[in-house]
Amino acid sequence: MTLTPSSPGSAARRPRGAVRQSRAGTAFVAAYVVLLVAFGVLPTAYAVYFAFTDAGGKVTGFANFTATAHDFRFMDAVSHVAVYLAFWLLSLVVFVVALALLLHRLASGSASKALRFLYYIPGALAGAASVLVWLFMLDPTVSPVSSLLGMSGFHTFGEVIAPGNLPLLFTVIAFWTGAGGWIVVMYGALNNIPTDVMEAARIDGAGAWQTAWHVQIPMLRKWIVYMVILAFAGGAQLFVEPQLLSLASVGVAGRDYSLNQLTFDFAFQMNNINGAAAVSVELLVVSVSAAALFVARSGFFDAD
């Protein structure tokens, strides 16, 4: 920390630094590209190949897509994921922005530091482990908040995991595990808003509410879009939460709930890898289209 490398001083050194920088940049990007090709592009291409062929490798056009769409679980899974996404994205945008603004208000002092740490802790737990924590939280017989569950009218695990509650439960679990990281990111973005802008707002007599609504949130817009794009892609791939819940509840809730679980079933229980690939290609198309829409509408890549 104390050893600040080559202070960006004299103009004479700049060109050499720039060359070195661009070379380092290329090296970093190259490493990423190799990984992207090996673990992103190739598997995707493989899935697309599978989606349009049958088990023998013969091209079948859209047969896999229509066959999987006719499975009786398909439309259910689509609606489950759609409802979950609506809950999840809405809660993410509203609460993450609100909590980040709150955190920024408290910027000075140890309360802010403690809160930042608290928000981030759940994110540090690995995904599946944090879902397991919730499975305990939601079982009234072992839950530390069983009285709270009891007051809401839930006395057994079976009542808690009634089909109507699932989107909300998965949202709560996903928010708890995933939102902390985003709060910290938003907080960082808020810190990047130039102080003169904030000062101008204050001099013009804007209160906390007005500053947030008219200055901070508009300047956070790109970050919010970025968060929504990633959260949409992640949410559409809902898998761990329902899968673990279905194991914990011995199949009462969460079996064949999401599209990703359906692909898992197709691939490994019905020996239909090609059908599974078709569904995953659909997920890819939907996520990419949603991202494209958000990017186009928000001017995500426009220079300021």
């Binding site: 079976g158 009542e159 009634a162 089909p163 199949g251 009462v252 064949d256």
Partner: peptide
């Protein structure tokens, strides 16, 4: 297909209600 899984997902939630 698992009969137990079908009962668990179809009948059990109704019984709980």
């Amino acid at each position: 297909f698992s009969q137990e899984a079908i009962w668990a997902a179809t009948v059990k939630p109704g019984m709980t209600q």
